[in-house]
Amino acid sequence: WKRNGHGPLDLHGALQASCDLYFWEISLRIWNERSDETGINNEDLWQEWARSFGFGTETGIDLPFERPGLIPDRQWFREEQREDTGRVRSTGPWVGGDLMNAVVGQGAVLVTPLQLSNGFSAMLNGGTLWTPRVVSEMVDQEGNVVDENPKSIIQTIDMDPVTVRALRRDMQQVVNGPIGTARAAFVGFGPNISTVGGKTGTAEIIKAVEDVQEVDTAWFVGVTPVLSPDYVVTVVVERGGSGGSVAAPVARQVLQYILNGEDSVTSLEAGENTD
């Protein structure tokens, strides 16, 4: 939240400055134009894109206890009301404000750090969503392969190469640009800073008790080399505060280690509270 406002922004500036207002406007347009002249309903346009990048479903990683997360829509909202779960308001329909809330990752949206890593990987590699894996193969004491877990593609998303290049540049500017929300967290990074990109996020939490001070959850996804990514680093600090001030500095240390070695890692200091 920037109290004095960001001033005029296009899509690239909105991504770099993490401007919710810009994306609220886009979601409101989706809502207002959800039915076209042919009668086709595009209300779930955002949800369909989010799910295509793996959000709202398990990634299939070879580990137990994975959770699918949640991408809410009108059908989910109605089911919650019917079952009286207490997770949505008891009366009234799904409205444009619910979509606006979801588009910026708030409201009922639930994602895991692994989903975020996998989704960003697909966005930046050109649209290939891979099944993540911990083990590629198992061997016995003699070195013989006894079991394999080969690479597998979940799906391929049709992404315009121009869009992919723009996303890479915008994430680079989040870290390196004059209005980037992670710029302060990466001051003093050292060599190769221009190859680093990222995106900050701050997830609101439900304030359970009015007189207890609770803070939001800090997120940051870092990538390198940003124009041809090999590494994705996702940091979440539950109830840590701003993504730019809390999660990004942690990711900075990991990325320093990856790019410049152990001796290059600088002390952990808070970045700017920008989102």
Rank of each mutant, 00 (worst) to 15 (best):
Thr156Cys: 07
Val221Ala: 12
Ala208Gln: 15
Ser90Gln: 13
Glu83Asn: 12
Arg82Lys: 15
Leu227Val: 09
Gly271Cys: 03
Asp10Glu: 03
Leu110Ile: 15
Ser264Pro: 06
Ser228Arg: 15
Gly105Val: 04
Asn4Met: 10
Val236Lys: 13
Asp275Phe: 13
Thr266Phe: 01
Arg168Glu: 08
Val250Phe: 01
Val232Ser: 09
Val174Ile: 06
Asn125Pro: 11
Glu204Pro: 04
Arg34Met: 05
Pro249Tyr: 10
Gly197Val: 08
Asp84Pro: 00
Phe23Thr: 12
Gly244Gln: 09
Thr200Gln: 04
Trp1Phe: 13
Ile179Phe: 05
Gly177Phe: 02
Trp49Ala: 14
Gly92His: 13
Thr181Asp: 07
Ala218Pro: 01
Leu129Phe: 11
Val88Asn: 05
Glu238Ile: 06
Gly107Trp: 05
Asp263His: 06
Tyr231Ala: 02
Ile205Lys: 13
Val265Gln: 09
Gln213Thr: 14
Gly222Asp: 09
Trp76Ile: 12
Glu262Gly: 03
Ser27Thr: 07
Thr234Gln: 01
Thr156Arg: 15
Ala14Asp: 08
Asp230Asn: 13
Glu80Tyr: 00
Trp76Ser: 10
Asn273Met: 11
Asp73His: 09
Gln47Asp: 12
Val246Ser: 10
Met100Pro: 01
Asp10Thr: 02
Val162His: 07
Lys151Cys: 01
Pro178Gly: 05
Glu58Lys: 14
Asp73Glu: 12
Gly201Pro: 03
Asp36Ser: 05
Ala166His: 06
Pro132Arg: 03
Thr85Glu: 09
Asp36Leu: 08
Trp49Val: 15
Gly39Tyr: 08
Pro150Lys: 00
Gly201Thr: 03
Gly127Asn: 04
Ala248Ser: 13
Leu114Lys: 03
Arg183Trp: 04
Arg165Ser: 10
Leu129Tyr: 12
Leu110Trp: 01
Pro161Leu: 07
Gly13Met: 06
Val162Asn: 11
Gly244Arg: 08
Val175Leu: 08
Ala184Asp: 13
Trp46Ile: 14
Gly271Ile: 04
Ala102Thr: 14
Glu148Pro: 00
Arg29Ile: 06
Asp36Glu: 11
Lys2Arg: 15
Leu116Ala: 10
Gly97Lys: 07
Ser152Arg: 14
Ala14Glu: 10
Val109Trp: 00
Glu80Cys: 05
Asp275Ile: 11
Gly126Met: 11
Thr57Ser: 14
Arg89Thr: 08
Glu214Phe: 00
Pro113Phe: 04
Thr234Val: 15
Leu63Tyr: 08
Gly198Ala: 03
Leu167Val: 12
Glu148Val: 14
Gln172Gly: 14
Arg168His: 07
Phe120Asn: 01
Pro113Lys: 06
Glu148Met: 13
Arg89Ile: 10
Thr224Ile: 01
Met159Gly: 01
Thr38Trp: 05
Gly39Lys: 02
Gln16Arg: 12
Ala251Lys: 03
Gly56Asp: 04
Asn101Ser: 15
Trp1Lys: 05
Phe120Gly: 00
Val146Met: 11
Pro249His: 10
Val175Arg: 03
Arg3Gly: 00
Asp44Cys: 05
Trp130Asp: 08
Ala218Met: 03
Arg133Met: 09
Asn144Ala: 14
Asn118Phe: 00
Ile71Arg: 06
Gly244Glu: 07
Phe23Gln: 11
Ala166Asp: 04
Ser194Trp: 07
Pro229His: 02
Glu83Gly: 02
Val145Phe: 11
Val236Ser: 01
